[in-house]
């Protein structure tokens, strides 16, 4: 084979070698809509959880598309959509300095405190 094939692309083996381009080309005919992130409340009593993203022309259409895309089998009772561009995020990297200060505050956890075993209901 002239090119590498992976079997793990889901529905089968296709070329994934270096000759397959991946970077977006500059295009003057970009047709795509803005990117929305989708959050679904699975059932009453649970938080909304991020499930993925989609493109839609506006907020209302984003909710409709999210309904069809992410809740075809009663996976949710409520949907939030928000434009990806409107999200401000920390880095999820665990080395991010934003999360470093909590690392040495072990006294914030119940296991920090030694209590005799015979103290009831503690």
């Amino acid at each position: 084979m002239s090119t590498d094939l992976t079997a793990e692309g889901g529905h089968g083996a296709v070329p994934t070698g270096a000759e397959v381009p991946v970077e977006p080309q500059a295009s003057t005919t970009r047709r795509d809509w803005p990117l929305y992130e989708v959050f679904v409340r699975g059932k009453r009593g649970l938080n909304h959880v991020h499930v993925g993203s989609l493109h839609a022309p506006d907020d209302e259409m984003a909710v409709h598309a999210a309904r069809d895309l992410y809740t075809r089998r009663n996976e949710g009772v409520s949907i939030w959509v928000v434009r990806a561009a409107d999200i401000t995020a920390s880095s999820p990297d665990e080395k991010d300095p934003m999360f470093a200060p909590s690392g040495d505050k072990v006294y914030r956890h119940p296991t920090f405190y030694d209590i005799p075993e015979d103290v009831p209901h503690m």
């Binding site: 084979m1 590498d4 094939l5 992976t6 079997a7 529905h11 089968g12 083996a13 994934t16 070698g17």
Partner: peptide
């Protein structure tokens, strides 16, 4: 059966 790709020996990036 072909969906799984060529034998491992012919799959250099695996």
């Amino acid at each position: 059966l072909m969906m799984f790709g060529p034998p491992d020996v012919d799959s250099p990036n695996s």
